[in-house]
Simulated scan of single mutants.
Amino acid sequence: MPSTDNPSTLPPFDPARARAVRQQLGLTLGQVAWAVAAYRGAPLHPETLLAWESGTAVPDEAEVKGLAAALWCSPVALVGEPATLAQCRTVAGLSPGETAARLGMTHARWEEAERRNRWQGTAAQTGALLRVLRPPPSCFVAVCGRTEQLKVLLREAVASWWPNYVTSVTRLVPLDPTAIQAALERLALGYQRLDQATGTSPRAAAEAEARAAEFLEHVDLHLWHALRTPADPARPDRDHRDS
């Protein structure tokens, strides 16, 4: 099996996942710091590891590899969601040649797609891409160059009758229409609360208008958040700007 720890194609480090792996192993910060230092041949203070796990500092690529060795896991277990074709391939544990073969394209064609981070495959190749690399919806939409088109549809959907847009959005975002429907409903409700907010002063009204405008500007990020976090029926939905 090819190496999956090429740091140049790893997604961003995820502090929560790293902390969870260490805690599941029952290791202290000092024990892990010692193991990382032994692997890399350079000292590592436990407070540095604590900073990584709390998100106040970010390990470099070599440090992620050392941390993974200390925790007896693959580096992909310590990172977040892939955002590029190269990151998707790394998370899948495939070499460029293996990826090209599984997608039914030449090695050179895949390397070009990965280098440009732009997908222009055939329908059959796209189906294989979704099955083999399983790119997150936000990544797939971005590499296909559909982000702006999606944002236009989402703005129209939340500002009008959102059920009319489920099919159109599903054509861009390869997910079950039921998931898209639920997410669009949440977005529409969130935007309506902002759009209909009335303040007791011109300043409050202006602030509400600004929040509504910001929601529309980042409406695609709100969609990804809604798809990742199903609504809790016990709590009213809250607007969220995804990071």
Rank of each mutant, 00 (worst) to 15 (best):
P2G: 05
S3F: 04
S3K: 04
T4A: 15
N6M: 02
T9G: 08
T9V: 11
T9K: 08
L10C: 11
F13D: 01
F13I: 04
D14H: 13
A16F: 05
Q24M: 05
Q24F: 07
L25M: 02
G26Y: 10
T28K: 01
T28A: 10
Q31G: 15
V36Q: 06
Y39V: 11
R40N: 11
R40L: 14
A42F: 06
L44A: 10
L44T: 09
H45S: 01
T48Q: 14
T48Y: 08
E53Y: 10
S54T: 15
D60F: 06
E61T: 14
A62D: 15
V64M: 06
K65Y: 11
A68L: 13
A70H: 02
L71Q: 08
A77P: 02
A77Y: 03
P82G: 09
P82V: 12
T84W: 00
A86Y: 01
Q87T: 12
T90F: 03
T90D: 07
G93Y: 04
G93L: 01
L94P: 14
E98K: 12
A101D: 13
R102E: 11
H107S: 02
R109K: 11
E111L: 13
E114G: 07
N117W: 07
T122C: 05
A123S: 13
R134H: 05
C139P: 11
V141L: 04
A142K: 04
G145C: 04
L150C: 14
L153S: 06
R155H: 05
R155G: 13
R155K: 11
E156Y: 03
A159Q: 15
T167F: 12
S168W: 00
T170V: 03
V173I: 12
D176A: 14
A179I: 02
Q181P: 00
A182V: 02
L184N: 10
E185N: 09
R186Q: 15
Y191A: 02
D195C: 08
Q196G: 09
T198Y: 05
T200G: 13
S201A: 01
P202N: 06
R203N: 06
A205K: 09
A213I: 07
V219L: 03
L223D: 05
W224P: 11
H225V: 01
R228G: 08
T229C: 08
T229M: 01
P230Y: 05
P233F: 02
A234Y: 12
R235N: 07
R235D: 11
R241I: 04
D242M: 09
